[in-house]
Amino acid sequence: MVRGSKKPRFGILDVIVLAAAIAAVAYVTYRVDSVLVYTWDWSAIPGYLFRYDEDLGHWVPNLLIKGLITTIRISIWALIVASIMGTILGVMRTSQRLLPRLIGWAYVEFIRNIPPVPFLFLFYFFISSQIIPLLNIGSALDQASPATLGVVEFLFGPANLIENFLSGLISLSMMSAAYIAEIVRAGILAVPKGQYEAGSSIGLSKLAIMRYIVLPQAIQRVVPPIAGQFITLIKDSSLVALISIQELSFLAMEIAISEQRFFEVWLFTGLMYFTICYACALAFGRLEKRMGRHLR
């Protein structure tokens, strides 16, 4: 039998730690309940998940589910755009030429050393507000066919809010690209130098070596951490509520104000974030194990 194949056992120390954790949670709950003078009422929450549409004759998503869909939608798009930008920046960071390496370094250090909220405001009010109107997206959507409009709304959300959506998408992508660039750079540097020498020995150019030899091996190494970056993106997407994008946190804030049930709404919203992030963590954990087997 292989020495490392034994299943972990649940020992007495684990029981003590678990019991201490349960006791700590119970004590905190008791203290909060005794100090906080508050009447809990969760009855309003289910109505904001789904509602019955009499015109359509069936149940449809309500505000919280719509917000969750928008959160997942903007996170997926931001990951796609940030992965493309981050890969380019990561390659630039490992370039032997000074100018690409300097541009990649300046971008990464600039983004990583600015807090997300100031960056979001600066980008939205000084850059996005000038560029997005020039694209005439609203005019193009007004002339689009119903089928085209349906596809656009499925991919990007309501047509009347698509400009805000794109602003938030670009902001999140630019912030996340800096971190993905470092992940890609580490993956490229992890490829043995012998791979470069082998490519040179058969007459491949530097671009061909990077494209056909280095990047395929680097991508295998960086897929698990980039997948983990997606979880960070889901949580960071709550920042775009500051520019009125109707994702989960924005709609939860409106519900909490209208119902005057701040604790219930935000606790349930936190549970929704935890559920989707933990589900992604489990899925990416399996992906990491599969990728690890291929790298052995």
Rank of each mutant, 00 (worst) to 15 (best):
I202R: 05
L18T: 12
S34H: 13
L56N: 06
Y196W: 15
I12P: 04
I69K: 08
L120T: 08
L166V: 13
Y38R: 15
Q143E: 15
M210I: 11
V17S: 14
L287V: 12
I234S: 04
F274K: 01
P46D: 14
V223T: 12
G4R: 14
I243T: 02
R93C: 02
A256F: 13
P100A: 11
P158N: 11
K6E: 15
R51P: 01
M174S: 02
D14L: 13
L149S: 07
T94N: 15
P8T: 00
L63W: 14
G157F: 05
Q229N: 15
S75G: 03
T232Y: 15
K7G: 09
G292A: 15
E163K: 13
A24M: 09
G168S: 05
I12Q: 03
H294C: 00
F119S: 01
I114T: 09
L135F: 14
I188L: 12
R51E: 14
G104T: 01
Q217L: 07
I65H: 02
I131F: 13
W77E: 11
R93P: 03
V91Q: 12
A281W: 00
I276L: 04
A144S: 14
D55Y: 13
S34W: 04
V15W: 15
A252W: 04
V35Y: 15
L36H: 08
I22G: 07
P225W: 08
F284W: 02
D41G: 00
Y30I: 07
Q96C: 00
I170T: 07
A21K: 08
V214R: 09
L248F: 08
T87R: 09
Q229D: 14
I84D: 01
P224D: 10
V191S: 09
R185N: 03
A241D: 07
A252L: 10
G285K: 09
Y27E: 11
E264R: 10
K289T: 07
F250T: 03
T29V: 13
S238E: 12
P8V: 01
V265I: 11
T71A: 03
E288H: 09
R101I: 03
N113F: 06
I255Y: 07
D41T: 00
R31W: 13
A281K: 10
D53L: 10
F126L: 11
A178W: 09
K235Q: 13
W105P: 05
L56I: 04
N160C: 00
S167N: 12
S145K: 06
M291E: 09
S128H: 02
L120R: 11
V151E: 10
L89K: 01
P158Y: 10
L102W: 04
S201N: 11
A241K: 02
L89Q: 07
I65T: 09
S129T: 06
S95I: 10
A21G: 06
L282S: 00
D33R: 13
R185F: 02
R73C: 03
V223C: 05
P225S: 11
G194E: 11
F262L: 00
A26L: 15
M85D: 08
R93F: 10
N160R: 13
Y48L: 03
R9P: 01
A24H: 03
G150M: 02
C277P: 00
G168K: 06
L215T: 09
A208T: 06
I74N: 06
V15C: 14
P115D: 02
L189H: 04
A252T: 14
S145R: 05
E109V: 02
N113C: 08
L161M: 02
P8H: 02
M174G: 00
P192G: 05
P158A: 12
R221G: 12
I16A: 11
T275R: 07
L282R: 07
I65P: 03
